[in-house]
Design a binder for these strands. Structure first.
Lengths: 206, 206
DNA sequence: GTCTTGTGTGTACAAGTGTGCACCACATAA
DNA sequence: TTATGTGGTGCACACTTGTACACACAAGAC
């Protein structure tokens, strides 16, 4: 057999994957039981405790893993950015594709953002705040929107994240719909973000 | 004893209130059991079936009740609107107050919007769409934003709802915070909606 | 080699779960 | 007045749940 630590990591991953699988099937994380997740991981219930204190603990680790996914997405979008004149449209397209690819992560995030325990909600919120801060620094680096003071900049970033996050909820329920519907969705999100950034550009310090 | 139908309605209400109470305590609706909700309503488990097919059925009825709450909110905001120059600021203030007053309804809505069963999500989404449609007709009645075609108008309404809905999630976690924090929140939401409507006004059909 | 350490197993138990069934009591209809 | 329909009760059943405990057995330390 392999290294001992590797074996441990393997079952740990199996447990986390089983939890995600549960969410993928349309169930809510909060209705998952230790026994169920252990069964799916092909392991006896009590073995669960070798890896996590309880299900909340597992959820927090999922959030951590999720943060890696989000950061990778951010990196990809930054690299693939082709035409600066279509930043919004292209970013939206990439984002949608990424959500489809990593669907279950976004499902977990969106349901835990509103439904998880207090600690989990905190964890996800701080993750999104990190995302917003990155967005702010991007905007500043490109010297866009010099008319906005730092506070307004934060509000703008928060608004952007909020729009995308809310849209994601719709997108997740759309993933088995026609590609026409998905195109409409992309168009809608693009237009909405354009409205926002037109408004931000027109903002006066008044 | 009272009328028989009244008695029935009373326990029915007791069951629904117990479910909301569960949510109010920070639990997720999906982790509620028939036995638990019956116990809280002071009734034997099997009595539950005299009123609802299952918990999903109860949740759908909660959504219906919620729709009444939302429509009343809409009515209030329309009536109390004082200064047309501060529509956004005043509406936000009223909304926040309303959320604080009906906190548990919004908790239930926000957690079921992302975490409920498919049917429940549908029900809530269509409720929000109704809300968006009302907003569109309000905007049209006041002849604001004549530069927007119907499709863009829908996107704008959707964006407004989305911003408010997402903010509500934050607001719900803020309700026991300092009034300073709540003020900051109102300010933020106001500014964000202003950005949006400035952007919408500046939109060109290009 | 032996010893320790730690991951996974099996058993066990009390508590909680959905739900079928027979029953009761009382408001209403006759 | 009696009959009926219906909301609520109590019991029963098989099942799931969290978790304690003793154990097995292989990887790594010595």
């Amino acid at each position: 057999m392999n290294n001992r630590q590797e074996r441990k990591l393997l079952t740990r991953q199996a447990l986390m994957n089983s939890a995600l699988q549960w969410v993928e099937e349309g169930q809510h994380f909060s209705s998952l039981s230790i026994r169920e997740v252990a069964k799916r991981a092909g392991v006896v219930p009590t073995a669960f405790y070798r890896h996590f204190k309880d299900l909340d603990d597992l959820a927090l680790n999922l959030v951590d893993e999720l943060s890696l996914v989000l950061r990778q997405l951010m990196r990809e979008v930054r690299q693939n950015r082709v035409s600066p004149s279509h930043i919004i449209r292209d970013s939206v397209a990439q984002y949608c594709e990424y959500v489809a690819r990593q669907k279950v992560f976004f499902q977990f995030m969106s349901q835990s953002m509103t439904g998880g325990s207090n600690t989990i909600r905190q964890a996800i919120r701080s993750e999104l705040q990190y995302f917003a801060k990155e967005l702010v620094s991007d905007l500043q680096r490109m010297s866009l929107l010099p008319n906005l003071d730092p506070v307004m900049m934060d509000h703008l970033a928060d608004l952007t994240i909020s729009t995308v996050a809310y849209s994601t909820i719709q997108l997740l329920d759309l993933s088995d719909a026609s590609s026409q519907a998905r195109n409409d969705f992309e168009m809608k999100l693009t237009r909405q973000l354009q409205i926002i950034y037109i408004g931000a550009a027109a903002w006066k310090k008044a």
